Simulated scan of single mutants.
Amino acid sequence: MIDTLRNVTGATVPGTPEENDRDLALDFDKGVLIILVIVGHLIQYILYRDEGFWDSPFFKWIYMFHMPLFMAISGYISCRALLRKSLMQAVGDRAMQLLVPMLFWCALLETAKLAMLPRAPDASGNILQLLNDVAGTYWFIWAALVCFLLVKILSIFKRWSPWILFLSVILIALAPLTFSIFPLIKYTYPFFCLGFSFAQSRDWWTSITRAYKPLLIMSASIATLVCFLAWRKDTYVYNNLVLVKDMQSAKDVLLMLFGSAAASAIMSELFQKCWRVGRSNRVVRFIAVEMGQSTLVLYLIQGMAFRLLDSIQYAEPSDLTSKLALAGILGAAIVLVALMVRRTVRDIPYLSQLILGTSPRPLCQAGQPADK
């Protein structure tokens, strides 16, 4: 994780001069992670339509690290905005980047559900369903925004921020909040803080870990394997809700957090190795440039697709081959639609902000001559 994040100096927005300086290794990480998000949902909604996915070793492996590592990267690349912008500007910019496109895709989701599915006459039930769709479908968006807001507020106390940040991680992890998406925020907040903290002192951390890197990798690998073998249904955040109420629940929460940290570190190092070896390969560069720089719209579209899939009744394929084929077709369709949407609207004012959460690129970057 440390090597992967080492050369990144902050988040960039398409259309700004800093975009040319973005670290493609980090984009490669994000590209692989968003692919794993889609694969994890395909396992859940296509390969298993019952509770069997909890025991899938592939599902278990993906869910050990993909969202924690995503949140750590989010904390890292948010460092510049958190430290340099005012509270109102930082939160306003982040809300425009995340909430505006999320609300757009939520509106499409509700429109599609209204057209495809009959609604109950109960108004209160419809409102609750709408709130569940907005919060549950895109919980990572809300978690990233809340984590950003909390760290920004804490960063006001610059002199004591490291200790305050550490204390906040403990307090939030122990908070007895188990409704809605609060458990998911409690689960991902430590990783956002970890990424943010490393961004503040990356040179120091890099120099410390470089000397012991082989030992650290070996230790993290062993820890990851042990946690993988011990991981069970109650270890997932969706089931333990990050709630410590007795010794067994404390073990489940600790295993979840420790296992996720170890697996995130190992997978980040593996992604970095893959990038170093294959960065001249077309597939690898496609993952970095196309997938890694489209993670938000990919996340939004796949969330909409799987929420719709969960709401409708359809004939399930009876054999594994058919299920794998259906999963492959659906996954490819999600990626294709997302990339087509991004290429279509990324250079159009207002639409790029509304649909993608980004500002349009300058004309010279969009393939048109620049004014002199």
Rank of each mutant, 00 (worst) to 15 (best):
Q302M: 07
A120P: 00
L194Y: 06
F179L: 09
R119M: 13
V277K: 14
L330E: 04
Y350P: 00
T209N: 03
N239W: 04
F228Y: 15
R279C: 13
Q97V: 10
S249I: 09
A144H: 02
G92R: 08
A263Y: 06
L243V: 04
K372N: 11
M116N: 00
S318V: 12
R119I: 02
V39G: 03
G303T: 05
G195R: 09
E18I: 05
I329R: 03
D21L: 12
D310R: 12
L167I: 13
L270T: 13
T188H: 01
F28Q: 05
V13Q: 14
Q353C: 08
S197H: 05
M67P: 00
I46D: 02
P101W: 07
V341K: 01
L36T: 05
C364V: 07
K30Q: 10
Y236C: 05
L194S: 09
C147Y: 02
K251A: 11
Y187M: 13
L324C: 12
D29V: 11
D21Q: 14
W205L: 14
S311W: 02
P349I: 09
E269C: 04
Q44G: 02
E316C: 07
Q313I: 11
E110K: 10
Y48W: 14
G292W: 05
R285Q: 12
M1L: 12
K233N: 08
L36A: 10
F148Q: 01
M88D: 04
N126I: 00
F228K: 09
W105N: 08
R159V: 04
L257V: 13
A261Q: 08
P162R: 03
D93E: 15
F59N: 03
L33Q: 11
L215N: 10
G328T: 01
F28K: 06
P360K: 11
A90D: 14
C147R: 01
Y63I: 10
R232I: 01
D93Y: 07
S201D: 12
R361H: 04
T4E: 06
I170R: 02
L229H: 09
V242H: 01
N281Y: 04
E110Y: 10
P369D: 05
M218D: 00
V244I: 15
A220L: 15
L356W: 06
I164L: 15
I127D: 00
S221H: 05
